[in-house]
Computed example of a mutant assay.
Amino acid sequence: MPENTLDGALPTHPRTGEAALGLRRDGRPIWPIKGGSGEGGDPAPTGDPNPNPPTPPAPSDDPAAEQELAEANTRAEQAAAERDELRSVERLKNAKGDAGQTSAEMLAMASVVLDTGARVGELCALRLEDLSPALGEVRIRRRPQNARPDSPVPVEVYPLRRATRAALQRYLLVRRMLMSDVTGGADWLWVSVRGNHGGVVAEGVEPEYRPAGTALQEWGTGRAYATTVTRVNLDLAGTPGWSTLPVRMEQLRRGVAAPELHLVPPAPDAERAAELMDRLQRAARSLAALPEARNAATTGRRARDEARHVLREAWRLGVEHQVQLAALSAGGLLAVDVTRAGWEPELLRALDRALHLTPL
Protein backbone atom coordinates (compact mmCIF):
# COMPACT_ATOMS: atom_id res chain seq x y z
CA MET A 1 0.00 0.00 0.00
CA PRO A 2 1.55 3.33 -0.99
CA GLU A 3 0.27 5.25 2.01
CA ASN A 4 -0.84 4.43 5.51
CA THR A 5 -4.64 4.69 5.74
CA LEU A 6 -4.98 4.36 9.50
CA ASP A 7 -5.36 8.13 9.83
CA GLY A 8 -8.35 8.18 7.42
CA ALA A 9 -6.48 9.29 4.26
CA LEU A 10 -7.32 7.44 1.02
CA PRO A 11 -4.51 5.69 -0.87
CA THR A 12 -3.00 7.06 -4.09
CA HIS A 13 -2.63 5.00 -7.27
CA PRO A 14 1.11 4.30 -7.92
CA ARG A 15 0.87 4.93 -11.69
CA THR A 16 -1.81 7.60 -12.24
CA GLY A 17 -1.33 9.43 -8.96
CA GLU A 18 -5.09 9.66 -8.54
CA ALA A 19 -6.57 9.32 -5.06
CA ALA A 20 -9.00 6.49 -4.47
CA LEU A 21 -12.71 7.32 -4.39
CA GLY A 22 -13.32 5.11 -1.36
CA LEU A 23 -12.76 1.70 0.14
CA ARG A 24 -14.73 -1.52 -0.39
CA ARG A 25 -15.95 -3.63 2.53
CA ASP A 26 -12.92 -5.90 2.25
CA GLY A 27 -10.55 -2.86 2.37
CA ARG A 28 -9.70 -2.72 -1.34
CA PRO A 29 -9.63 0.81 -2.85
CA ILE A 30 -12.04 2.01 -5.51
CA TRP A 31 -10.00 3.68 -8.27
CA PRO A 32 -11.42 6.35 -10.59
CA ILE A 33 -11.76 5.47 -14.28
CA LYS A 34 -10.39 7.82 -16.88
CA GLY A 35 -13.19 9.29 -18.93
CA GLY A 36 -15.86 8.13 -16.48
CA SER A 37 -18.75 10.16 -15.18
CA GLY A 38 -17.36 10.16 -11.64
CA GLU A 39 -20.39 8.22 -10.35
CA GLY A 40 -18.84 4.74 -10.53
CA GLY A 41 -20.63 3.77 -13.76
CA ASP A 42 -19.17 2.46 -16.98
CA PRO A 43 -17.41 4.98 -19.21
CA ALA A 44 -19.66 6.56 -21.80
CA PRO A 45 -18.96 5.33 -25.33
CA THR A 46 -17.53 7.84 -27.69
CA GLY A 47 -18.12 7.92 -31.40
CA ASP A 48 -20.21 5.53 -33.49
CA PRO A 49 -19.35 1.91 -32.53
CA ASN A 50 -20.42 0.73 -35.98
CA PRO A 51 -20.12 3.51 -38.59
CA ASN A 52 -21.29 1.15 -41.34
CA PRO A 53 -24.32 -0.78 -39.98
CA PRO A 54 -25.55 -3.62 -42.19
CA THR A 55 -28.42 -2.77 -44.46
CA PRO A 56 -31.46 -5.04 -43.95
CA PRO A 57 -32.26 -7.13 -47.01
CA ALA A 58 -34.91 -5.71 -49.26
CA PRO A 59 -38.12 -7.70 -49.56
CA SER A 60 -38.15 -10.04 -52.51
CA ASP A 61 -40.54 -9.41 -55.37
CA ASP A 62 -40.41 -13.01 -56.56
CA PRO A 63 -43.52 -14.92 -55.32
CA ALA A 64 -41.87 -18.25 -56.12
CA ALA A 65 -38.87 -17.43 -53.94
CA GLU A 66 -41.13 -16.36 -51.08
CA GLN A 67 -43.13 -19.57 -51.40
CA GLU A 68 -39.96 -21.66 -51.41
CA LEU A 69 -38.71 -19.85 -48.31
CA ALA A 70 -42.05 -20.40 -46.54
CA GLU A 71 -41.98 -24.12 -47.37
CA ALA A 72 -38.40 -24.38 -46.10
CA ASN A 73 -39.45 -22.72 -42.83
CA THR A 74 -42.37 -25.13 -42.51
CA ARG A 75 -40.09 -28.14 -43.05
CA ALA A 76 -37.67 -26.79 -40.45
CA GLU A 77 -40.50 -26.35 -37.94
CA GLN A 78 -41.73 -29.90 -38.57
CA ALA A 79 -38.22 -31.29 -38.12
CA ALA A 80 -37.84 -29.38 -34.85
CA ALA A 81 -41.21 -30.74 -33.65
CA GLU A 82 -40.11 -34.30 -34.49
CA ARG A 83 -36.86 -33.83 -32.56
CA ASP A 84 -38.78 -32.52 -29.54
CA GLU A 85 -41.09 -35.53 -29.71
CA LEU A 86 -38.18 -37.96 -29.82
CA ARG A 87 -36.66 -36.25 -26.79
CA SER A 88 -39.96 -36.55 -24.91
CA VAL A 89 -40.15 -40.25 -25.78
CA GLU A 90 -36.64 -40.81 -24.43
CA ARG A 91 -37.49 -38.91 -21.26
CA LEU A 92 -40.55 -41.09 -20.73
CA LYS A 93 -38.49 -44.23 -21.32
CA ASN A 94 -36.01 -43.19 -18.67
CA ALA A 95 -38.44 -41.61 -16.19
CA LYS A 96 -39.12 -44.00 -13.33
CA GLY A 97 -39.52 -47.00 -15.66
CA ASP A 98 -42.73 -48.97 -15.18
CA ALA A 99 -43.78 -46.80 -12.23
CA GLY A 100 -43.80 -43.66 -14.36
CA GLN A 101 -45.74 -45.36 -17.14
CA THR A 102 -48.26 -46.77 -14.69
CA SER A 103 -48.68 -43.36 -13.07
CA ALA A 104 -49.35 -41.76 -16.47
CA GLU A 105 -52.01 -44.36 -17.26
CA MET A 106 -53.67 -44.22 -13.85
CA LEU A 107 -53.74 -40.41 -13.95
CA ALA A 108 -55.51 -40.51 -17.31
CA MET A 109 -57.97 -43.16 -16.10
CA ALA A 110 -58.75 -41.29 -12.89
CA SER A 111 -59.28 -38.08 -14.87
CA VAL A 112 -61.76 -39.83 -17.17
CA VAL A 113 -63.58 -41.26 -14.14
CA LEU A 114 -63.86 -37.79 -12.59
CA ASP A 115 -65.35 -36.43 -15.84
CA THR A 116 -67.72 -39.31 -16.57
CA GLY A 117 -68.35 -41.31 -13.39
CA ALA A 118 -67.56 -44.50 -15.33
CA ARG A 119 -67.26 -47.88 -13.58
CA VAL A 120 -64.13 -50.00 -13.91
CA GLY A 121 -65.78 -52.33 -16.42
CA GLU A 122 -67.06 -49.44 -18.53
CA LEU A 123 -63.60 -47.89 -18.43
CA CYS A 124 -61.83 -51.07 -19.54
CA ALA A 125 -64.30 -51.47 -22.43
CA LEU A 126 -63.17 -48.19 -24.02
CA ARG A 127 -61.51 -48.32 -27.43
CA LEU A 128 -59.79 -45.71 -29.52
CA GLU A 129 -63.05 -45.14 -31.40
CA ASP A 130 -64.57 -43.87 -28.16
CA LEU A 131 -62.28 -40.81 -28.14
CA SER A 132 -63.28 -37.82 -30.24
CA PRO A 133 -60.73 -36.72 -32.88
CA ALA A 134 -59.65 -33.69 -30.81
CA LEU A 135 -59.78 -35.56 -27.44
CA GLY A 136 -62.51 -33.15 -26.39
CA GLU A 137 -65.12 -35.83 -25.59
CA VAL A 138 -65.37 -39.50 -24.68
CA ARG A 139 -68.13 -42.03 -25.37
CA ILE A 140 -69.25 -44.33 -22.54
CA ARG A 141 -71.45 -47.39 -22.99
CA ARG A 142 -73.24 -47.86 -19.69
CA ARG A 143 -73.47 -51.31 -18.17
CA PRO A 144 -76.07 -51.14 -15.38
CA GLN A 145 -75.72 -53.93 -12.85
CA ASN A 146 -79.42 -54.90 -12.88
CA ALA A 147 -80.01 -54.45 -16.62
CA ARG A 148 -81.64 -57.25 -18.61
CA PRO A 149 -79.50 -58.96 -21.26
CA ASP A 150 -81.85 -57.89 -24.09
CA SER A 151 -82.15 -54.26 -22.99
CA PRO A 152 -80.48 -51.64 -25.26
CA VAL A 153 -77.11 -50.33 -24.13
CA PRO A 154 -77.29 -46.58 -23.42
CA VAL A 155 -74.51 -44.60 -25.11
CA GLU A 156 -73.47 -41.31 -23.48
CA VAL A 157 -70.98 -38.63 -24.56
CA TYR A 158 -69.14 -36.58 -21.92
CA PRO A 159 -66.97 -33.49 -22.43
CA LEU A 160 -63.43 -33.71 -21.08
CA ARG A 161 -61.66 -31.01 -19.09
CA ARG A 162 -58.40 -29.52 -20.30
CA ALA A 163 -56.47 -31.37 -17.59
CA THR A 164 -58.01 -34.67 -18.74
CA ARG A 165 -57.04 -33.98 -22.35
CA ALA A 166 -53.45 -33.29 -21.25
CA ALA A 167 -53.37 -36.53 -19.25
CA LEU A 168 -54.69 -38.49 -22.26
CA GLN A 169 -52.10 -36.94 -24.57
CA ARG A 170 -49.31 -38.02 -22.23
CA TYR A 171 -50.77 -41.49 -21.81
CA LEU A 172 -51.16 -42.02 -25.59
CA LEU A 173 -47.45 -41.32 -25.94
CA VAL A 174 -46.70 -43.95 -23.26
CA ARG A 175 -49.16 -46.32 -24.95
CA ARG A 176 -47.32 -46.03 -28.27
CA MET A 177 -44.11 -47.23 -26.60
CA LEU A 178 -45.93 -50.12 -24.90
CA MET A 179 -47.35 -51.36 -28.21
CA SER A 180 -43.89 -52.13 -29.64
CA ASP A 181 -44.12 -55.88 -28.86
CA VAL A 182 -47.81 -56.39 -29.70
CA THR A 183 -48.68 -57.81 -33.13
CA GLY A 184 -52.42 -58.41 -32.69
CA GLY A 185 -55.35 -56.07 -32.45
CA ALA A 186 -54.36 -52.77 -30.93
CA ASP A 187 -57.56 -50.74 -30.65
CA TRP A 188 -58.06 -51.04 -26.88
CA LEU A 189 -57.55 -47.71 -25.14
CA TRP A 190 -56.09 -48.99 -21.86
CA VAL A 191 -53.24 -51.50 -22.12
CA SER A 192 -50.93 -53.25 -19.68
CA VAL A 193 -47.63 -51.65 -18.69
CA ARG A 194 -45.70 -54.91 -18.18
CA GLY A 195 -45.99 -58.47 -19.43
CA ASN A 196 -48.05 -61.07 -17.58
CA HIS A 197 -49.38 -64.61 -17.93
CA GLY A 198 -52.70 -65.49 -19.48
CA GLY A 199 -54.51 -66.53 -16.30
CA VAL A 200 -55.14 -69.84 -14.52
CA VAL A 201 -54.30 -72.94 -16.58
CA ALA A 202 -54.34 -76.69 -15.99
CA GLU A 203 -51.57 -78.37 -14.03
CA GLY A 204 -48.51 -79.10 -16.11
CA VAL A 205 -49.47 -76.58 -18.81
CA GLU A 206 -47.37 -73.48 -19.33
CA PRO A 207 -49.44 -70.28 -19.07
CA GLU A 208 -49.68 -68.13 -22.16
CA TYR A 209 -47.41 -65.10 -21.95
CA ARG A 210 -49.00 -61.73 -22.64
CA PRO A 211 -46.54 -58.94 -23.47
CA ALA A 212 -46.91 -55.35 -22.38
CA GLY A 213 -49.48 -53.52 -24.48
CA THR A 214 -52.31 -56.07 -24.28
CA ALA A 215 -55.81 -55.07 -23.20
CA LEU A 216 -56.12 -54.18 -19.52
CA GLN A 217 -58.63 -56.23 -17.51
CA GLU A 218 -60.87 -55.06 -14.69
CA TRP A 219 -59.04 -56.84 -11.87
CA GLY A 220 -55.62 -55.62 -13.03
CA THR A 221 -56.97 -52.09 -13.41
CA GLY A 222 -58.25 -51.98 -9.84
CA ARG A 223 -55.01 -53.40 -8.44
CA ALA A 224 -52.82 -50.98 -10.45
CA TYR A 225 -54.97 -48.03 -9.38
CA ALA A 226 -54.79 -48.98 -5.69
CA THR A 227 -51.01 -49.44 -5.83
CA THR A 228 -50.45 -46.12 -7.61
CA VAL A 229 -52.76 -44.11 -5.36
CA THR A 230 -51.21 -45.59 -2.22
CA ARG A 231 -47.75 -44.54 -3.40
CA VAL A 232 -48.97 -41.05 -4.31
CA ASN A 233 -50.69 -40.60 -0.94
CA LEU A 234 -47.47 -41.55 0.87
CA ASP A 235 -45.31 -39.28 -1.30
CA LEU A 236 -47.57 -36.24 -0.90
CA ALA A 237 -48.59 -36.75 2.73
CA GLY A 238 -48.23 -33.50 4.65
CA THR A 239 -48.09 -31.33 1.52
CA PRO A 240 -50.18 -28.15 1.97
CA GLY A 241 -53.48 -28.44 0.11
CA TRP A 242 -53.20 -32.18 -0.50
CA SER A 243 -56.17 -34.41 0.35
CA THR A 244 -55.81 -38.16 0.52
CA LEU A 245 -57.25 -39.92 -2.53
CA PRO A 246 -59.51 -42.98 -2.18
CA VAL A 247 -57.58 -46.18 -2.86
CA ARG A 248 -60.48 -47.83 -4.67
CA MET A 249 -61.71 -46.59 -8.02
CA GLU A 250 -65.33 -47.26 -7.06
CA GLN A 251 -64.96 -44.86 -4.12
CA LEU A 252 -63.57 -42.25 -6.50
CA ARG A 253 -66.50 -42.77 -8.90
CA ARG A 254 -69.13 -42.41 -6.21
CA GLY A 255 -67.69 -39.07 -5.16
CA VAL A 256 -68.24 -37.57 -8.63
CA ALA A 257 -71.07 -35.09 -9.02
CA ALA A 258 -73.52 -35.66 -11.87
CA PRO A 259 -71.44 -34.78 -14.94
CA GLU A 260 -72.70 -33.15 -18.12
CA LEU A 261 -73.62 -35.68 -20.80
CA HIS A 262 -75.18 -36.03 -24.25
CA LEU A 263 -77.22 -39.08 -25.24
CA VAL A 264 -76.36 -40.37 -28.70
CA PRO A 265 -77.99 -43.06 -30.86
CA PRO A 266 -76.45 -46.56 -30.67
CA ALA A 267 -76.24 -46.71 -34.48
CA PRO A 268 -75.55 -43.84 -36.92
CA ASP A 269 -78.20 -42.44 -39.25
CA ALA A 270 -76.97 -43.22 -42.79
CA GLU A 271 -78.52 -40.16 -44.43
CA ARG A 272 -77.19 -37.78 -41.79
CA ALA A 273 -73.76 -39.42 -41.92
CA ALA A 274 -73.56 -38.99 -45.73
CA GLU A 275 -74.45 -35.32 -45.37
CA LEU A 276 -71.73 -34.76 -42.78
CA MET A 277 -69.10 -36.56 -44.86
CA ASP A 278 -69.96 -34.35 -47.85
CA ARG A 279 -69.48 -31.24 -45.72
CA LEU A 280 -66.21 -32.66 -44.39
CA GLN A 281 -64.89 -33.16 -47.94
CA ARG A 282 -65.66 -29.54 -48.83
CA ALA A 283 -63.86 -28.32 -45.71
CA ALA A 284 -60.89 -30.57 -46.57
CA ARG A 285 -60.65 -29.01 -50.05
CA SER A 286 -60.49 -25.56 -48.49
CA LEU A 287 -57.78 -26.64 -46.05
CA ALA A 288 -55.79 -28.41 -48.76
CA ALA A 289 -55.80 -25.24 -50.89
CA LEU A 290 -53.84 -23.34 -48.24
CA PRO A 291 -50.19 -22.92 -49.27
CA GLU A 292 -48.68 -23.58 -45.85
CA ALA A 293 -49.66 -24.58 -42.34
CA ARG A 294 -49.11 -21.05 -41.04
CA ASN A 295 -52.06 -19.75 -43.06
CA ALA A 296 -54.37 -22.35 -41.54
CA ALA A 297 -54.51 -20.21 -38.37
CA THR A 298 -55.56 -17.05 -40.22
CA THR A 299 -57.12 -17.25 -43.67
CA GLY A 300 -58.17 -20.89 -43.17
CA ARG A 301 -59.93 -20.36 -39.86
CA ARG A 302 -63.41 -20.75 -41.32
CA ALA A 303 -62.56 -24.04 -43.04
CA ARG A 304 -60.76 -25.28 -39.94
CA ASP A 305 -63.70 -24.48 -37.65
CA GLU A 306 -66.11 -26.12 -40.10
CA ALA A 307 -63.98 -29.27 -40.24
CA ARG A 308 -63.75 -29.51 -36.44
CA HIS A 309 -67.48 -28.99 -36.04
CA VAL A 310 -68.31 -31.67 -38.62
CA LEU A 311 -65.80 -34.10 -37.09
CA ARG A 312 -67.40 -33.69 -33.67
CA GLU A 313 -70.92 -34.15 -35.01
CA ALA A 314 -69.93 -37.17 -37.11
CA TRP A 315 -68.16 -38.78 -34.17
CA ARG A 316 -71.16 -38.21 -31.91
CA LEU A 317 -73.35 -39.80 -34.56
CA GLY A 318 -71.14 -42.89 -34.50
CA VAL A 319 -69.21 -42.47 -37.76
CA GLU A 320 -65.93 -44.37 -37.45
CA HIS A 321 -62.58 -42.61 -37.41
CA GLN A 322 -61.39 -44.32 -40.58
CA VAL A 323 -64.47 -43.12 -42.48
CA GLN A 324 -63.77 -39.54 -41.39
CA LEU A 325 -60.10 -39.83 -42.40
CA ALA A 326 -61.16 -41.25 -45.78
CA ALA A 327 -63.43 -38.24 -46.34
CA LEU A 328 -60.56 -35.86 -45.55
CA SER A 329 -58.31 -37.75 -47.95
CA ALA A 330 -60.98 -37.66 -50.67
CA GLY A 331 -61.09 -33.89 -50.24
CA GLY A 332 -57.38 -33.67 -51.11
CA LEU A 333 -55.99 -33.17 -47.59
CA LEU A 334 -52.66 -34.94 -47.21
CA ALA A 335 -51.99 -37.20 -44.23
CA VAL A 336 -49.36 -34.80 -42.84
CA ASP A 337 -51.94 -31.99 -42.86
CA VAL A 338 -54.80 -33.87 -41.16
CA THR A 339 -54.05 -32.05 -37.92
CA ARG A 340 -55.32 -28.86 -39.61
CA ALA A 341 -58.80 -30.33 -39.28
CA GLY A 342 -58.39 -30.66 -35.51
CA TRP A 343 -57.11 -34.23 -35.10
CA GLU A 344 -54.89 -35.00 -32.12
CA PRO A 345 -51.51 -36.25 -33.49
CA GLU A 346 -51.02 -39.00 -30.89
CA LEU A 347 -54.53 -40.33 -31.55
CA LEU A 348 -53.72 -40.47 -35.26
CA ARG A 349 -50.58 -42.50 -34.53
CA ALA A 350 -52.56 -44.89 -32.32
CA LEU A 351 -55.17 -45.36 -35.06
CA ASP A 352 -52.47 -46.01 -37.62
CA ARG A 353 -50.94 -48.63 -35.32
CA ALA A 354 -54.33 -50.31 -34.84
CA LEU A 355 -55.01 -50.31 -38.59
CA HIS A 356 -51.71 -51.81 -39.74
CA LEU A 357 -51.25 -54.15 -36.75
CA THR A 358 -47.49 -53.61 -36.87
CA PRO A 359 -45.22 -51.86 -34.37
CA LEU A 360 -44.56 -48.19 -35.10
Rank of each mutant, 00 (worst) to 15 (best):
R24F: 05
P49A: 05
G40L: 10
R24T: 13
P53W: 03
K34F: 11
N50E: 07
G36I: 05
L21W: 10
N52V: 15
N50Q: 13
G35V: 00
G36M: 10
P29C: 02
I33T: 09
D26M: 04
G41E: 08
D26F: 12
G27A: 06
S37L: 15
I33E: 04
D42T: 14
E39V: 10
R28Y: 05
K34I: 10
N50P: 00
R28S: 13
G22H: 05
L21P: 00
N52G: 04
P51G: 00
G36R: 12
R24M: 10
W31L: 02
R25T: 13
L23H: 03
P51R: 04
E39S: 12
N50S: 12
L21V: 09
G27Q: 09
T46Q: 15
D26G: 07
P29Y: 06
G47L: 03
P29A: 01
P32F: 10
P49Q: 08
P29K: 08
W31G: 00
E39T: 13
P43M: 00
G41S: 13
N50W: 08
G47Y: 09
E39H: 12
G47F: 05
R28T: 15
S37Y: 15
G41T: 11
R28A: 10
T46L: 14
P32K: 02
R24S: 08
P53N: 01
P53K: 06
W31S: 00
P45Q: 09
G38H: 07
G38A: 04
P29H: 08
P29N: 03
D26C: 06
P49V: 00
G22S: 09
N52H: 12
I30C: 05
D42P: 11
P29F: 07
G40K: 06
R25Q: 06
T46A: 15
